[in-house]
Design a protein around this nucleic acid. Structure first.
Lengths: 349, 349
DNA sequence: GTGAAAGCGCTAACAT
DNA sequence: ATGTTAGCGCTTTCAC
C-alpha cells in the first residue's frame, strides 16, 4: 500500500511518467494493459503508480475517449422497495461492465423526467435506463428519440417503436390472480388502480378481467380507477363502499392501492380474509410479516434489471435490430389475506 | 425551440463560436453570464446557442475548473424507505446548488463502502455524504481522512473528530419511548437490536434504559442484541420466547427488528396490543395501514439531509471550524400497537 | 517499444 | 470588449 497524506492535487499521469522515467503515453498503455510495453518499463510504471497512489481520473479519461462509461438511470421515485431494488441491481450490473451508474429520481413528474434526461444527455452518458413516470409515449422517450440517445425503457411500458422495453408480464400475472380468486369462489371482485392511461395498468386490468370471465362468466368485476393520485383513489374507494358495495375480494393493481385498500378495510373494521380478501400487485417485505400476510404479485426485479442492461449494452455496442419488447414472468404469492367467501361469510346475493 | 435531428456529435463551444462569429472565450463568458460582453455579440451567441441546441458539457467544464460540481452519496442500501427518502432529499438539495448527486449503495459491506469511496475520490467529487455501514470509526472515514476528502457523516454516527456528523437524536427519542411505555404500566420490556457496536444502537438502548429506570426503578429490561445479522436476531428472539419469557412490550431499535418481532408474534399467535405491545425505531408507510397500526419513532429525514448538505457546502467553501455533531429531534408516533398490560392481560408476577 | 504531438470540450489569464 | 494562448488529465495516432 502506498502511504500518502491528505493533499490538494492528486498525482497525474505525468507525475507517474516522470517518476518512472517514461512518457505519459507509456503509462497510459500500461494502465490499459497493452502488452507491447517492455516488461522492465512496465514494472517501473507499476512501481511508480504504487508509490504515488496514482489512479486514473475516469472523467478525464472518458473526455478523451469520446464515449463515457456512465449509465444513467431515471426512476419515478426512490422510496419504494421496488425501485430501490431496481437501482441496486442496475448499479451492480453496470459496475460489472466497468460503468458507473448515475441514478436520479423524476419524483413522478414528467417535466422533471425530461430535465433529468437532458442533464444526462449533457453528461454524454453511454446509455439510459428509463422507468418513465407514465408510459413509453411520454416526452422523455420523445426527447431520447429526437437526440439520438441510446436507452432502454422499463417498468411502466409494454413496447416501443424506437427503444427496447423490459417489464413485468402484468397480464399473465393478473390472469393468475384471477384464476386463484375464481378458484376460491369469489364472484364479486373489486379492482382498484390508477388511471387507465398507463399501458401496464390496462394490461393488468384486462388480463385479470379476461381470465376471470373465461372461468366464471357470471363474475361481477367492479373497477375503481383514480387519475394518478392516491388520495383520489382513497376517496373513490370510500364512496364505493359507502354505497353498500360488498365485494368478497379486492385486487389492487399497484402497491399504494394495496395500502389504501388495507387502510379502508381497517376504517370499516373489516379483517382479511374473513370479511374480505386482498391481493396486490407488487410485493413488499412487510407483507409477509403482518397478520394476516398479504398476498401479492412479485415482480422479477433482478431479471428486469439484467435484461434491461443486456439490451442497453447491446445497443451501446452498436446493435441495430428492431426494438425488442420483453415481458418477464412474475410470481403470485397467495398468502393469508386471501380466503374463500363460501367458508367465511354468507354469500352475497 | 431548436429543431435538431438525432446525431452523433453534439455541437461544441467552437461550433457556437464560429456560428456567432466570435471566439470560444466569448461564448464561455456569455454562458457564464458575464456582463462585460457587448450586447449585440451576446445576442448573436444566444441565437447560435438556440439554433444549434448547444449545452455546456458539465464534465469538460469541471475538468477545466479543477473543482467538480458533483456530490457523492454513499448509503448502506437503497431498499428501505428511509434511505430512499434520504437520497431523494440529498439529490434535491444538491441540485439546488447546481451540483449533481451521484449515489451509490455499499450494500451493508464495509469493504464495498471503501471501494465506492475510492471511486468517488477518483471522480474528484467536491464532497461526500456518507452513511457508514457501521459507524464513524470505520475504514471509509479513515480513507476520507487519509486522502483529505471533504465529507459529512450521517445516520449511524454520533460524532467524529474529523468530519461533521448529522443524525437522529436516538437517545432522546428512546427516552420518550420509555416514558410512554412506563406511563402505560409496562414493567417488563424487551429491547431488540443489532450488536452494541453501532454507536447509535447503544445510544438508543442506553437512552431507553436510563429513562425507564429513572421513572420506574423496578422495571425489568431484557435485551436481545444480535451480531449484525437479522436472521440471528430472529433465532435469538425465538429462543428468548421459547424460554417462557413474557414481556408486556417490545421496543425494536431498528426497522428490520420491528419486522422480525412482528413475525415472531404472529408465529406464536400473539396480537398487538392485547397480547403484547410493540414500538419500533424507524417509521414506514405500511405501519399506519396495518391493523393494528405500529407505533414508531420517525426520523427527520429532511432535516438530516438539509443540515448534512449545509455542513458539506460550508466545508467545500473552505470552512475550517472544528467538526460539529448535530442531533436532529425525532417524533414518536404512538399508535395502536401500544396498549396497557393492566387493561388487557393478567399482570405477570 | 516508445514518445511527441494533437486534441476531447471547456475556462481562465493575459494581451490587445 | 474580445481573442489568443495555455492548459485541466487523459488517450491516441503516428513517426521514430
Amino acid at each position: 500500500m502506498a502511504h500518502r497524506q491528505a493533499q490538494q492535487r492528486r498525482p497525474s499521469i505525468h507525475d507517474v511518467a516522470s517518476r518512472a522515467g517514461v512518457s505519459a503515453a507509456t503509462v497510459s498503455k500500461v494502465m490499459a494493459g497493452v502488452t507491447t510495453v517492455k516488461p522492465e518499463n512496465a514494472q517501473r510504471v507499476i512501481d511508480a503508480v504504487e508509490l504515488l497512489g496514482y489512479r486514473i481520473d475516469p472523467l478525464a479519461s472518458d473526455l478523451r475517449r469520446a464515449k463515457r462509461r456512465i449509465i444513467g438511470a431515471i426512476m419515478p421515485e426512490f422510496e419504494s422497495e421496488f425501485f430501490g431494488q431496481m437501482v441496486t441491481q442496475l448499479e451492480s450490473f453496470a459496475e460489472q461492465r466497468g460503468y458507473t451508474l448515475v441514478a436520479a429520481s423524476s419524483r413522478e413528474s414528467e417535466a422533471r423526467e425530461t430535465e433529468i434526461l437532458a442533464r444526462m444527455h449533457d453528461w454524454r452518458v453511454a446509455g439510459v435506463v428509463l422507468a418513465p413516470v407514465r408510459n413509453e409515449h411520454g416526452p422523455a422517450a420523445a426527447f431520447m428519440k429526437a437526440n439520438g440517445m441510446t436507452g432502454v425503457l422499463i417498468d411502466r411500458v409494454l413496447s416501443d417503436d424506437a427503444f427496447d422495453t423490459v417489464s413485468a408480464d402484468s397480464a399473465s400475472a393478473s390472469a393468475e390472480v384471477a384464476r386463484e380468486l375464481i378458484g376460491k369462489d369469489h364472484r364479486h371482485i373489486l379492482v382498484v388502480g390508477l388511471s387507465e392511461q398507463a399501458a401496464t395498468g390496462r394490461a393488468r386490468l384486462e388480463g385479470f378481467r379476461a381470465a376471470a370471465r373465461a372461468l366464471a362468466p357470471d363474475v361481477r368485476i367492479d373497477v375503481v380507477l383514480a387519475e394518478a393520485d392516491v388520495e383520489t383513489l382513497r376517496a373513490q374507494l370510500r364512496d364505493y363502499f359507502a354505497k353498500g358495495e360488498r365485494p368478497t375480494a379486492v385486487y389492487s393493481l399497484f402497491l399504494k392501492g394495496t395500502l389504501v385498500a388495507l387502510s379502508e378495510f381497517r376504517r370499516r373494521g373489516w379483517h382479511c380474509p374473513d370479511d374480505i380478501s386482498l391481493v396486490g400487485f407488487d410485493d413488499a417485505e412487510w407483507m409477509q410479516v403482518t397478520w394476516p400476510a398479504i398476498a401479492a404479485v412479485v415482480q422479477p426485479v433482478r431479471q428486469i434489471a439484467g435484461h434491461a442492461m443486456e439490451a442497453l449494452f447491446a445497443r451501446i455496442a452498436g446493435g441495430e435490430e428492431p426494438p425488442i419488447a420483453r415481458l418477464e414472468p412474475c410470481k403470485v404469492l397467495m398468502r393469508e389475506s386471501v380466503g374463500s367467501p363460501s367458508l367465511s361469510q354468507p354469500k352475497p346475493t
